[in-house]
Design a protein around this nucleic acid. Structure first.
Lengths: 226, 226
DNA sequence: CGGATTTTTCTAACACTGTTCAAATACCAC
DNA sequence: GTGGTATTTGAACAGTGTTAGAAAAATCCG
C-alpha cells in the first residue's frame, strides 16, 4: 500500500503513536482536573513520562492543548458532515446541521471546555501564536460550513449565508455557555426534548428570515466595512 | 448625617480607602497585563505594597477579581437602569435596555474580559466559592432585569419574560464573545451603526415573538423541569 | 509623654507551575 | 559488539499564589 514509509516510516510511526498516547493522557487529565487545574506534570505522569520528556514531542503545553482541541473540532466537523449527508433538502439540512452541532456538545460536554478556552486568549504564556489560532479558527469554521451551505441552498446570498452561520453560532455559543456553566439546563435525561425544541425555534427564525427575503437587511449588521 | 460611624468609623473608613486603592491598582494591572498575566506581585507593586500585605485586605487573588467584577456589573446595571428610566413605553424600553447593555461593553471592552472570566470556572484555585459565584450571578441578573420587565410590560408572562431575558443575553453574549476576540467586527469608528442595527434586528425578533403571541411555545425550550 | 496593645506591613519561605539543558539511556544500523 | 542517533531523565530556573511569624506603625490609655 504505502511505498515510501518503509524506509523512514518505522521511527515516524512509533513517534506518532507516542504522540497520540500523550494526547490521550492529556485529554484524560483535562477532563479529570479541568483545564486550568491540569498540570504538565500530571499529564506526564498519566502518560508514564517525565515532564521534560513531553518537550521532545511537543513544543509547549499550549501546543498539546491546541492539538487536543483540533481533534475535538475534527470530530465535530465529522458529526455535522454526516448528519447533513444523511439529510435531503435545504431546510432539513440546515436543521440537521444545527442539531448535530448542538448534539455534539450535549454528548461531549467536556469538549466545551476546550472550545471556550479558544475564546479566552489561550493559556498563560501570552496565548497561542497567531498561526495556530487561525488554524483552530479554520477548524471551527469547517465544522460550521454546512450551516452556511444549507442557507445558501435556501436562497440566501453567499454573504447572507455566512452572516447567518456566524449569527447561529453566536447564539448557540451563548446558550451553550450558559448551559455549560450551570446557569440554565438544556440537556440531561430529565428534559430530553429541550435541545430539539430550541433548535426548532432557532431554525424557524432563520427560515422566516430567509423565506421573507428579509435576510439581507436583517443580518447586514454583521458586515464589517472598515 | 451619619451618627454611628463616628465612633469606630475612622479606622473602617481608612481601611475601605486602602481596599479601593488596591482594587484600582488591580484593575489597572488587569487591563495592562490581561487577566491571566496579572500577577499578584504586579498588583501589589502597582498599589505600593508587598504581595503578602494584600492578604490582610483580601482573602485571595480571586477575591480581588470578584470585587473588581462586581463593581463592573454595578456600573452596567446603572447604565441600563438610567437608559430605561429615560425612555417611555414598553417596546422602546426593551430596545433601550438591550442597547445600553451592548453599548456598555462597546465603551468598556476591558470589562468583557472580567465578565467572560465568570463563565470559565473562575481562576486557578478551584474557582470562587459557590457563595460568591451566586453573588456575581445576582449582579448580572440585576443588570439585565429591565429587559425582562420591558418584555413583561409588552404582554409576556413572567416566565416568558425571564426566558426572553436569558435568550437575549445568550445571543448578545455570543456576539460579544466573537467581537471581543476579533472574530467579527461590530464596534469601532469605521462602522458606527453596526451595533445599533444588530440591536434593532434582535429586538424586532423579540417584538414579533411577543406580538404574535408565539412567545410561549417559542421560548419554552428554556424551561428546566428537573 | 510613655508604655501596652492592636492593627498593619514586611521578610522569608513553601509548594506549585511551565520550561530549559546537559547528561544519561535506549535504540538501531553496521 | 561498536558508533551514532533518537529519546528520556534529573536538576535546576524563574515564575506563580499563599502562609507564618517577625517587625514596624498606628492607636489607645493612664
Amino acid at each position: 500500500m504505502t511505498a515510501e514509509p518503509r524506509k523512514r516510516g518505522r521511527a515516524q510511526a512509533v513517534r506518532d503513536l507516542k504522540r497520540s498516547l500523550i494526547l490521550e493522557a492529556a485529554r484524560t487529565i483535562f477532563e479529570t482536573e479541568g483545564l486550568d487545574g491540569a498540570s504538565l506534570r500530571a499529564i506526564a505522569a498519566e502518560a508514564g513520562y517525565t515532564p521534560a520528556a513531553l518537550y521532545f514531542h511537543f513544543e509547549s503545553k499550549e501546543a498539546i492543548y491546541a492539538e487536543v482541541l483540533q481533534a475535538s473540532l475534527n470530530n465535530l466537523r465529522e458529526a455535522v458532515a454526516t448528519a447533513v449527508a444523511n439529510t435531503n433538502g435545504p431546510a432539513p439540512r440546515l436543521r440537521a446541521a444545527a442539531m448535530a452541532f448542538f448534539k455534539y456538545y450535549a454528548d461531549n460536554p467536556r469538549d466545551l471546555d476546550l472550545g471556550f478556552y479558544l475564546f479566552r486568549g489561550g493559556m498563560k504564556p501570552k496565548g497561542l501564536g497567531r498561526e495556530r489560532d487561525e488554524q483552530l479558527n479554520a477548524g471551527l469554521a469547517a465544522a460550521l460550513l454546512p450551516i452556511a451551505e444549507a442557507a445558501r441552498a435556501m436562497g440566501a446570498s453567499q454573504e447572507e449565508a455566512d452572516l447567518m452561520m456566524v449569527d447561529t453560532f453566536a447564539h448557540a455559543a451563548g446558550m451553550l455557555l450558559l448551559a455549560h456553566t450551570g446557569r440554565i439546563r438544556m440537556f440531561g435525561t430529565s428534559a430530553p426534548g429541550l435541545m430539539e425544541r430550541y433548535i426548532d425555534e432557532r431554525i424557524g427564525q432563520l427560515e422566516r428570515l430567509v423565506g421573507a427575503q428579509a435576510a439581507a437587511p436583517a443580518l447586514s449588521f454583521l458586515k464589517s466595512n472598515d
